[in-house]
Design a protein around this nucleic acid. Sequence first.
DNA 1: CGGGATCCCGCACGATACTG
DNA 2: CAGTATCGTGCGGGATCCCG
Lengths: 131, 131
Amino acid sequence: MSITQEHAEDQNLPYNVFAKACPSRGTLEHVTGRWGALTLGALREGSLRFNELRRRVDGVSEKMLSQTLQALERDGLVHREAQPTNPPRVDYELTPLGHQVAGHLLALIRCVEDRMDDVLAAREEYDGRQN
Amino acid sequence: MSITQEHAEDQNLPYNVFAKACPSRGTLEHVTGRWGALTLGALREGSLRFNELRRRVDGVSEKMLSQTLQALERDGLVHREAQPTNPPRVDYELTPLGHQVAGHLLALIRCVEDRMDDVLAAREEYDGRQN
DNA sequence: CGGGATCCCGCACGATACTG
DNA sequence: CAGTATCGTGCGGGATCCCG
């Protein structure tokens, strides 16, 4: 091993969201996307069925919820459990990885909610400042 | 105070991102948006000038960066410091609130980067499973 | 109930050019 | 350098219908 190797990364950390081509950016967008964040947040409380989820995430269309769930399932964040009954029953729940990610997300969400008054005040000052 | 007063304005936590009409959802979208998250993440390391930021957030256009920064400044997450010199010099830095939010964001980003191998593996299994 | 297929519109976004 | 202005378009995403 070269002694000139300044940043001797013991482990390989090749993933960097700030680089355009990095696949991690795509996953970050699934996670932080308009519906992805709310879906993961909602699922953190426990497993939910499709229409329960749809009611919980106010405003999401069937199509977008379906699409969002597929992306999250593909990324290994959500587990889909379908029972071949009639009528069909499908439950969605977080994987351990999804749970971890949703934890960070929920902390962020709570933070934004908690400090929303500050945000609103900042907006008023901003709008008032430049006429 | 009227007993018919439905919404108690003096409550502490009236904000709920899961409700479609809640203003906190808009702010969450600014923060978790495609460029918002990366911009806040980049600024956490210190103040940056416009083009420095543009280079750091690989792939962002001038227009989108400008637009993103305006939204974040309006929400009180970013402070813009313009010096009337020639050539002009403008520095962007996080406010205390922005720093707090960006902290959560960066934790999320690191988490996604760290576990990207798991995500990629999950994708392969998903793609291979249902042909 | 849990979706898939299709149609279609708006605007988020990129590219380009211009300004102080 | 640090942005605005303008224009064109891709696709995000809503609406609707349908099926097992």
